[in-house]
Amino acid sequence: MITQEKYRSKAKKLLADGSVKMVIGYSPGSTADRRRPLFVRSFEEADQLVLDSNCIANLSGYLVTEGLLSDEKRVAIFLRPEGIRSLNILAAESQLNVDQIIIFGFDSIGREVSSLSGEHAGEFSELISSIKENPPEKSSEPLLYQIEQMNPQERFAFWKEEFSRCIKCYACRQSCPMCYCRRCIVDSNQPQWVNTSSHTLGNFEWNIVRAFHLAGRCVGCGNCDRSCPVNIPLRLINARMAAEVLESFDHFAGMSTTQEPVLASFKKEDSETFIL
């Protein structure tokens, strides 16, 4: 509650003196434990802002809404550490100018919400480094551990079963802050690389292409996973890719606003285990 009040008054102050044109935060949702995004444009609306442990969605994707930042005015946004990492990637990929973004950083342990110190992207580098150095316990993702123990055939069968439910609604894409392309590859039909119908081949194509597009970019915010209407554990694929790039290239997504994309940059010390 203290953190919520602190940020409410900060939002009021920034909106009142015109230092930001909008605050992107959370408001109560359709059920008691759901929160929906709130776009606060005026001083009065700021009282609707809610901040508690149920505020889990990564809101950074809203920043790249076409035209939002083109007037060069500033926007404040509530971000968890993963959200700050997404923001760094968006800046590194030239999708926004971080100088326009004021961060209302927060994190939660249990039901306890705490604010993060700093309000500009560059001020969180120590926090992000410590997340890199102290990865979550394996036991926090029992399913991931379980999948990794499977042999390739079992794993293939597992994902085939999971993907069989995919209805190609692309909610994962829409909710992902990294999926900002004006035209997604699946919307390109000359040629139609990814089969649009919802059968095994097309479902595999889509989900594998997305996993590759997120290699070295996914921060594990879980937006895709939560938005999936058929509950495919998408975060696990991306977590696996993130672990691969970390191990192979020591690349931890979203370290800074100048981090080079892992798949487009080359370092002499890169391991070349894939060259036989």
Binding site: E93, S94, Q95, Y180, C181, R182, R183, S188, E260, P261, L263, A264, S265
Partner: peptide, 13 residues
């Protein structure tokens, strides 16, 4: 030019 997202990955690559 219509679909380029301007991420500059190609510039680096």
């Amino acid at each position: 030019e219509a679909t380029c997202a301007g991420c500059w990955g190609c510039v680096l690559a």
